[in-house]
């Protein structure tokens, strides 16, 4: 019985990862088309790095800029969805370990999530 649930969980996690990649890449593609329609002839220069150049540099900024439906904001939303796909996988793993009553591994999943939450805080000093 336990073996069956293990297989089910593996299948669910596998599907979650696949759907996450497909959805996020589709979003990036839609954003790319919109971006290129409006900016195809624009000159680009990435020679020098500037912290302030990319204004879509937080989750909040992506969502506040989203209603304008600009290509770059949609691309950035797709990238954000991609970043959160493996993170959603940890949540799934935590649930599956909980069902198996393996509390040590529920704790380990929570520790990994907490470490990632630290990076959400802007990587310490912003």
């Amino acid at each position: 019985m336990n073996k069956v649930t293990d297989k089910d969980i593996q299948s669910i996690i596998g599907n979650l990862l696949r759907i996450g990649v497909i959805l996020s890449m589709a979003t990036v593609l839609i954003g790319a088309v919109i971006y290129l329609f409006g900016n195809a002839g624009k000159r680009v220069d990435y020679h020098a790095f500037d912290y302030a150049k990319v204004h879509l540099n937080s989750i909040k900024s992506i969502f506040t800029n989203l209603p304008a439906l600009e290509g770059i904001t949609i691309i950035q939303l797709g990238l954000l969805m991609l970043i959160f796909t493996p993170i959603a996988r940890i949540v799934m793993a935590a649930v599956s370990f909980f069902i198996e009553k393996d509390y040590l591994y529920v704790l380990i999943c929570v520790i990994v999530l907490l470490i990632i939450a630290m990076s959400l805080n802007g990587g310490f000093a912003h």
Binding site: F49, D50, K53, V54, N57, S58, Q76, L79, G123
Partner: peptide
């Protein structure tokens, strides 16, 4: 992302 290193156009 928070450091502005993820440029969507690249």
């Amino acid at each position: 992302l928070h450091r502005g290193q993820i440029d969507p156009t690249i």
